[in-house]
């Protein structure tokens, strides 16, 4: 594996080919905020919080670091006025759904996000997909998935699968940054017992 040298926030960083910018930064102790990233899961790129600016021989653009592959001589900036502005807005958009989520509150403090920027629509789920992907990629059970699209996208358990697989697993629960997953599960459980009666 060839070694790649890049620069993140002015610091020389060594990385291996095939690594993402986020991985390289984390190894070098540079923190980039994330919500949908998990080391055991395939990169997903949904929350867009880990957005950074790259400069490839004078060619600058914004990319999400959890997906962007490292390259020789890449120059990465993880914080700037613009990046922070985007992150602040992302956090504000999500706070409309899950105003009391601890992860979001921490991020709100860091980026000066206004908890009340948008009208509250507490559906709790922020669509990070951690539960769905963990259940599919790590547990290979596919008990929970996405339904619908656009603004109507939701997570949903498959009751028949959940009734067999979930009761002694629940490994996805601590991954959820809000209470949405547990609520969805409790609802499914209620439905399951209801249909059994």
């Amino acid at each position: 594996m060839s070694e790649i040298l890049l620069k993140i926030d002015g610091k020389e960083v060594k990385a291996r080919e095939g690594m993402t910018v986020l991985e390289a930064a984390q190894r070098a102790g540079i923190s980039i905020p994330t919500l949908c990233h998990h080391e055991k899961l395939e990169p997903y790129g949904a929350c867009r919080l880990c957005i950074v600016e790259i400069d490839m021989r004078g060619w600058k653009k914004l990319v999400v670091s959890c997906l962007y592959p490292v390259a020789q001589d890449l120059v990465v900036t993880t914080k700037s006025e613009k990046i922070n502005r985007i992150r602040k807005m992302i956090v504000e958009l999500l706070l409309a759904h899950a105003p009391d989520a601890f992860d979001l509150q921490d991020l709100a403090r860091e980026y000066g996000a206004d908890r009340d920027r948008f009208e509250k629509e507490s559906s709790f789920c922020i669509h990070c997909g951690l539960c769905v992907r963990y259940c599919a990629e790590v547990k290979k059970k596919h008990a929970v998935g996405f339904v619908n699209r656009g603004a109507n996208r939701e997570i949903s358990f498959i009751p028949e699968v959940a009734s067999k697989e979930c009761w002694n697993c629940k490994e996805c629960f601590p991954l959820c940054p809000t209470e949405a997953l547990q609520a969805a599960y409790v609802l499914t459980e209620a439905l399951m017992s209801h249909t059994r009666q």
Binding site: V132, A136, H142, A143, V144, G145, F146, V147, N148, R149, S156, I158, E160, V161
Partner: peptide, 12 residues
Amino acid sequence: VPMTRVQHIATF
């Protein structure tokens, strides 16, 4: 194919 995928497609 997992039911989750069928369900996602059928609603997507």
